[in-house]
């Protein structure tokens, strides 16, 4: 059952980091649950033929679906190393008897260790991928594999360095929007030809993007010139109109209302 304590500690560390920052959220996490179920069964002593293959396939699919997220390639690499060693030994992680003996544990080779995924081996062609790195403290002894270390590194990279586009977008929206702008009704532009094409373009862009509307209210000339995708060329008449609107408007809603009135010629 010590293994479940290790998993619990990993989960708690993940929770603490996630309290502090929002990582990118992987997709298709049901695949992870499918991958984990046979492994947990193995730890509990339930061995079903073919389930290790299901676990490998589900893990592989999950990694493929989320490879763009920072840290997932590392997790995939670690899982691949572990699963390669486990596949070589019929779904159990090899641990060398001499390494166990060095730590004071004496088990016979071929023995499946209770409460773990490990099998004691005399030697293995893939022993470098097996559990052979001891982590010993006064409280506990842990024998980990290079794959385990890669997985821990990948999870930390995911938690600490992946970005959440959605949350960032929300943050930006909150930074740019004002309470007045969110509660006011935005005026609708009247369809048809306008005598002010540049201002029409600007009004449509501002109506589509609240952040741009907010910037226009603060500095209409700069915001109009510096739009990342659409350049709006303002003539002297347009500039004078914008300056006048800005002088009158106190909120984004008022600014857009005035701009719509100018565009519509009302």
């Amino acid at each position: 059952m010590n293994l479940f304590v290790v998993y619990l500690v990993c989960a708690l560390v993940g929770a603490v980091i996630a309290l502090w920052r929002a990582p990118a959220w992987p997709r298709y996490n049901l695949l992870l649950a499918i991958a984990a179920t046979p492994q947990v069964g193995h730890v509990l002593g339930i061995h079903i033929r073919g389930m290790f293959a299901v676990s490998v396939m589900a893990m592989l699919l999950w990694c493929c679906c989320n490879y763009r997220i920072a840290g997932v390639p590392l997790v995939a690499g670690g899982a691949a190393l572990n699963m390669l060693a486990m596949a070589w030994h019929g779904g159990a992680m090899p641990v060398r008897a001499d390494i166990l003996a060095g730590l004071g544990y004496h088990f016979e080779t071929g023995m499946l260790l209770e409460g773990s995924k490990d099998i004691v081996v005399h030697g293995s062609p893939l022993w470098l991928l097996s559990d052979w790195l001891p982590v010993t403290t006064d409280l506990f002894t842990l024998i980990v594999s290079p794959g385990d270390l890669l997985i821990v590194g990948g999870v930390l990279v995911w938690l600490l360095f992946s970005r959440t586009p959605e949350s960032e977008r929300k943050h930006l929206m909150l930074a740019f929007s004002t309470p007045a702008a969110s509660t006011e009704k935005r005026p609708r532009l009247v369809q048809g030809q306008s005598a002010r094409p540049a201002l029409t373009r600007l009004a449509l862009l501002a109506a589509a993007d609240p952040a741009l509307a907010e910037r226009l209210l603060r500095d209409p000339f700069d915001a109009a010139d510096a739009h990342p995708h659409y350049h709006v060329t303002l003539d002297a008449h347009d500039r004078a109109t914008l300056a006048a609107i800005r002088a009158r408007a106190r909120t984004v809603g008022e600014f857009l209302g005035e701009l719509a009135a100018e565009v519509d010629g009302t």
Binding site: M83, M86, M93, V95, L113, L142
Partner: peptide, 8 residues
């Protein structure tokens, strides 16, 4: 799902 440490 992926880690296999031994915690004797």
């Amino acid at each position: 799902a992926a880690m296999a440490p031994l915690a004797p």
